[in-house]
Design a protein around this nucleic acid. Structure first.
Length: 113
RNA sequence: CAAGUGAGCUAAACAGCCGCGGCGGCGCUGACGCGCCGGUGAGGAAAGUCCGAGCUUCGCAGGGCAGGGUGCCGGAGAAAUCCCGGUGGAGGCGACUCUAAGGAAAGUGCAACAGAAAUAAACCGCCGCGUUAUGCGGUAAGGAUGGAAAGGCGGGGCAAGAGCCCACCGGUCCCCGGGUAAUCGGGGACGCUAUGUAAACCCCACCCGAAGCAACACCGACAGGGGCAGCGAUUUGCCCGAUCCAUACCCCGAAGGGUGGCUUGAGCCGCGGGGAGACCCACGGCCUAGACAGAUGGCUGUUCAAGACAGAACUCGGCUUACCGGCUCAGUUGGGAA
RNA sequence: GCAUCCGUAGCUCAGCUGGAUAGAGCGUCAGACUCCGACUCUGAAGGCCGUGUGUUCGAAUCACAUCGGAUGCA
C-alpha cells in the first residue's frame, strides 16, 4: 500500500480554500480540488478553537484513521483538506468516520456503492 | 473511633488484528526509495514561562549616568528570588503553617473623616492671680476623637501637675556568658530625645553586556540594485572611550531546500555509607522519544477500584498552576475501652 | 522562544499614576406628556471593581501570585 501524501505548504491550503469546492457534513468540512499528480494529497486543519493540544491531537488521529480506511476507494489526483469544526472535540471514531464518508460521498470523491 | 497536620509513592492492566515516527539488520534498485524482520516510542506536571544555568552567536564586552534585581543568619548546590536548617515576628488548643525580615536622628512627601490639637498642642477640666463678669498665667493626671495623642503602671512630689524623682516593665548603649552567625540569657549605665508609612520618593550594601536552537554552523540554489567617512556600525536607553568600514556593513529584491545543532546528560536505577536536612561520596548496572505541518491511533475481547489533569520540540535545576482516585509513613487533638 | 497590554453596572468605557465619594453614555424599570405610541422630561434599580494573599489606619488603585482574554516580534 502507498503511504498517504500530505499537504504541507501554506499556499496549497490557501489555494484550496480560495479555488476549491467544499462540502460540510457533521463535525467536518472538506475542501477538494484536482491536482496534477497521479495520487491524492491530504491536509488536516484542526485549529485552536477545537480544544487544547490533547484534544486536537486526538481529532487529527481520528480523521487520519478514517481516511486511511477509505483511502483506496477515493478518486485519484485530488487535493483534499479536512477541517475540523469545534464540535469534533466531543466526537468519537464512529462519528468522525460517518462524517467523513458522508462528505466524500456528497463530493463525489468515492462511489456510493 | 472521629477530626485535623505534615511528608512521600502511583497515574489501569492484558491478549489478538490493522496502522504511524525514529533506530538497527537483511534483501531489491542506477538512484530517490520500497519490502521483510527485530527492537523502541510522551509527563508528573511534557503546561504556565515566574526565576536560575548550560550551550551558541554578536566589529570584544571599557567607564559613567539612567534602568532593573536582591535585602535576618548559616548551609547546600553549576547557579538562583529556589531548596535545607536556624533566629526574630504573626496565626493555631495542638501536630504545624506563614513571613519582600536593611535604614524613619540624610532629606522630601502623605496621613481623609473625627478631634481643641496629627508632629504640632490648652476645647472641657484642674490650679494660681484678678474680677460683678469677660480675663491672664501654669498644667498633659482626667474627659472626648482617632489607626496613632509625647513610653506603661504604681508610689513619691506639687498650688495643680509633669521622668520632676524612684521601683518594675519597655527602649538605646556597653560588658560578660552560650552560639560559626542572626540572636538569646544575665549584669550595668542612660530619664528617654525620635507617631506611622520606604510593596511612597529615597538612602545604604551587593549584583546585572545582549539576544535566544526560528540561536547558530556548513552545503546547495540564486540575479541583482541602491546607500556608505557619517545624523554610520559595534545587541534595551543616554554620554564618553575604544574598535571597524568597500571581497566589509546597511537597506530593497530573488531564493527560501538539505545536513548538523538533536540527545551520554550537573543522566537514570539499585545497594551501601556520611549528614539534622537540602545534599554529598563509593560500588554495580542501564542507554531510556528525537519529530520538522510535526509520530502512540482504530476495532474486538477479558479483569477491576471504571480510568483525572493532560501531549515532548535544544537540554537541565527550582517555583507555580491543573488533577479521578488509591496507597504508605510520622506527629496532634478529642472521645471510648483496658 | 521572547515581549507588551487589558479584565470595573446587561453593553461601551472613565476613575488607578497621586489611596478614603465607585461615575458617564446606551439599555432596563416606574412616573409625566399623548386618545395611543415614538421623541422628550423626571426619578429609581442595578457593582463582593477577574480570583487569592499581603503592605497600610484604610486597597478598584500599591506589591506578589494566579486565572482568563488580546496583541506584537523572530
Amino acid at each position: 500500500m502507498k503511504k498517504t501524501v500530505s499537504i504541507k505548504e501554506n499556499k496549497d491550503f490557501k489555494r484550496l480554500y480560495y479555488r476549491g469546492k467544499s462540502v460540510a457534513a457533521g463535525c467536518l468540512v472538506v475542501y477538494y480540488r484536482q491536482n496534477p499528480y497521479p495520487f491524492c494529497r491530504l491536509g488536516l486543519t484542526v485549529s485552536a478553537k477545537v480544544g487544547k493540544a490533547v484534544v486536537r491531537n486526538r481529532v487529527r488521529r481520528l480523521i487520519r484513521e478514517s481516511y486511511r480506511i477509505m483511502e483506496d476507494g477515493v478518486r485519484k489526483s485530488m487535493d483534499i483538506v479536512v477541517v475540523a469544526r469545534s464540535s469534533a472535540a466531543a466526537a468519537d471514531f464512529r462519528a468522525v468516520r460517518a462524517s467523513l464518508s458522508e462528505a466524500f460521498l456528497r463530493a463525489g470523491l468515492i462511489n456510493g456503492e
